[in-house]
Amino acid sequence: MAMPITHYLRTSKMPHIWCAGCGHGMVLGAVLRAIDSLGLDKDQVCVVSGIGCASRAPGYLDFNTLHTTHGRALAFATGIRMVKPGMKVIVLTGDGDAAAIGGNHLIHAARRNIGIATVCFNNSIYGMTSGQYSPMTPTGSYASTAPYGHIEEPFDLCELVYAAGASYVARGTAYHALLLSKLIAKAIATDGFSFVEAITQCPTYYGRRNRMRTAVDMLKWQKEHGVPVASAARMSPEEMVGKFRIGELGTRTRPEYTRRYAAIIEVAEKGEAERDA
């Protein structure tokens, strides 16, 4: 890193609130290393979050930050990006915040392709409220609200966001921290809506209910189940059962929303000028 990590932290707020072994600090470290690698001016970055464990992150960060209402980080971020199109707007959100409460904001931000980088800390559970299942909880796993095993299928959030129109979609894990940091850097540099799903561990409410007693067990699980996209392309569907792809999952070039908006303002002003003439 060009700058020490403390350069980007409100050190007076540390240590953070997350449990021992929680992967959120690892994902946050990857976000900070990504920002550092891009050499961004701290005043030109705005980090926005909703509610939940992951959404506590901006409180520790020395950028422009906003801690908003549940699921609405992208709505606030859209407003910021509209009035400050030069600002790098980064949303840090959890799987419940992004996929359940904020699911609608997520797909519409992707559809508009507004230039916001979203990092979803996916720990498969609502940690802050003691372990209820989320739309990202794997089928068959246990949660405080699924004591006999979860009967629903989770979203493939990356596929969903890409289908909705995002310019860049990727997935990493807390274990693959260097890869995650590179993916987040590319997401922040993307012109358009970008989304990185960061698979992270909640040892307190997910791991201990699902035969992974410690954070170390959960990180080993990430290591064994995350398959780089290039390797996954050579594997059969049977070999991929229970595993997930990591790396860049989709990139495309589409017009960015705030620039389209600026262009339509020009059209409208021209029209009014002609009408008034």
């Binding site: 540390m14 992967g23 600090g25 470290g29 807390a174 274990y175």
Partner: peptide, 10 residues
């Protein structure tokens, strides 16, 4: 350093 969840290692 990169795996420390507490950002406590340099």
């Amino acid at each position: 350093e990169i795996m420390c969840p507490d950002l406590a290692i340099v």
